[in-house]
Each structure stands twice: as structure tokens, then as C-alpha cells.
């Protein structure tokens, strides 16, 4: 979903740039609450993994492809604020070194995939986790649903920006329909990848998963003295 330079006009790009800068500034302060000596390396690993995952375009039919966006994945693994920082670093490296996503569109891309992706994904994750049984096996399916929803939500926000500041005179309704349709299909891929990765990490190290940590702590409190036989 990397927006190139030129799709959106300068005023819109300035506004998304300000939104992105503000979001990153707040995230830098809030991420402190999510990061300690144990989880800081996890943030580096998650960002690196998302960069790699975004290189894998999977076909979704009719000559179209999609790839992992990673917002929901990052938010569940390291927390939404740290996740937004991870995505921002990925998008910065892609724009500067890989010519993927425009430099003047960096604010737009951080807003869409970093802020909207992480927070929409995380909000839905929390909602689903609240209705599922409180155990670690619920974390991956909840993350998958968050991922599924986050992609069309980001696509809808792009369409909103396009309606406000798109440089080409194209009917917004047509863009919205096409964006939502394709990105719902891409969201299914996002859900599968997110669910599998979260399930693997929860299986190996649930204590390192932001969205599972409270469950692990609860379980640890229940541990009693070793049974004496």
C-alpha cells in the first residue's frame, strides 16, 4: 500500500506529515511504557521481520498482489506505540533506500500503515481478545482478526485522503469500492501471516508477546509449591 510521490497534493502531504510526526513524537514517549531491557530487542526483531515480510507479495487474483503490512502484527507483539515506531522505521528505510513509497509521501505512509494499521489492528485485537477465553491460545486468533480488519481500514483512510487531496480527477466511489474489495482479500493474507507468526511466538516465548503478557503473569501467580510426593 506504499503511496508514491504525486498521488496526493502538497497540502494533504504536509498534513499527513504533521500527523505522522506528531504520532511518532507521542509514540516515542508512550513506547517507554512498553519497552524494557527484555523487550527492546524484540522491537528490532519485529521491525526487521516486517521489512522482510513486506517483500513477499502474494498473488490475490486478476494480476494483483498484496503483502503483509504488519501493523496488527507489530502492535500485538510489541505494543501499539512501539509497533508504530517499528513500522515508521521500516517505511523510512524503504522510502530512502529502496525507492518504495515516496519521500514526500512518507508521512502519508506512516499515517496509513504505521498509525492506522497498528491502532486499528490493536483495537480490534483487544475487542476480540475480550470475548475469547482468557488464555494464551486466544491471542493468535484475536491478532488475526485485528490484522484482517486493519488492511481495509487503512485502504479506506487512503481513499479519504485521496478524496481530499488526490491529484487526479477520479471518482472517489470507484476508488473506495476497488480499494476496499482488493484490500479485504489482501487482509485475509494479512490475517493468515499474522495469526501464524503470533502463534509461533506465543508458543515459544509468550512472555515476550505484549498482547499475551498479562495472561502469562496471571498463570505465573497461580504456580504453587512443587507437589511433594
Amino acid at each position: 500500500m506504499h503511496v508514491p510521490d504525486g498521488f496526493l497534493d502538497a497540502p494533504t502531504s504536509v498534513v499527513t506529515g504533521v500527523v505522522a510526526a506528531g504520532g511518532v513524537a507521542v509514540a516515542l514517549r508512550k513506547a517507554r511504557g512498553e519497552l524494557d531491557d527484555r523487550t527492546a530487542p524484540m522491537a528490532g526483531l519485529v521491525a526487521a521481520f516486517i521489512f522482510a515480510g513486506q517483500m513477499i507479495n502474494f498473488p490475490v487474483g486478476a494480476g494483483t498482489s498484496g503483502h503483509l503490512l504488519g501493523g496488527a502484527l507489530a502492535a500485538v507483539l510489541v505494543g501499539p506505540w512501539t509497533g508504530a515506531l517499528c513500522l515508521s522505521v521500516v517505511l523510512l528505510v524503504q522510502a530512502l533506500f529502496m525507492a518504495d513509497g515516496g519521500v514526500t509521501a512518507l508521512g502519508t505512509n506512516i499515517t496509513l500503515m504505521g498509525l492506522v494499521g497498528c491502532f486499528a489492528g490493536y483495537a480490534v485485537f483487544r475487542l476480540v481478545a475480550a470475548v475469547l477465553p482468557r488464555r494464551t491460545s486466544s491471542v493468535a486468533p484475536a491478532a488475526a482478526v485485528g490484522a484482517l480488519v486493519s488492511v481495509p481500514v487503512a485502504a479506506a483512510v487512503f481513499t479519504l485522503l485521496f478524496a481530499i487531496g488526490g491529484t487526479a480527477p477520479v471518482d472517489t466511489g470507484a476508488v473506495l469500492t476497488a480499494m476496499l474489495g482488493w484490500h479485504t482479500v489482501i487482509g485475509v493474507g494479512e490475517a493468515v501471516v499474522t495469526g501464524l507468526v503470533v502463534a509461533s511466538v506465543v508458543a515459544a516465548r509468550p512472555d515476550l508477546v505484549h498482547g499475551a503478557r498479562h495472561l502469562v503473569e496471571t498463570r505465573e501467580l497461580e504456580i504453587r509449591k512443587a507437589a511433594t510426593t
Binding site: 519497552l35 528490532g44 526483531l45 521500516v90 528505510v93
Partner: peptide, 13 residues
Amino acid sequence: GVALVLVLAGGLA
């Protein structure tokens, strides 16, 4: 790219 992102995001964290 993976190395760059790992160092930047890990360092930031």
C-alpha cells in the same frame, strides 16, 4: 534492508 531496520529500530527501542 533487514540489517538496517534491525539496527535502527533496535537502537531506537
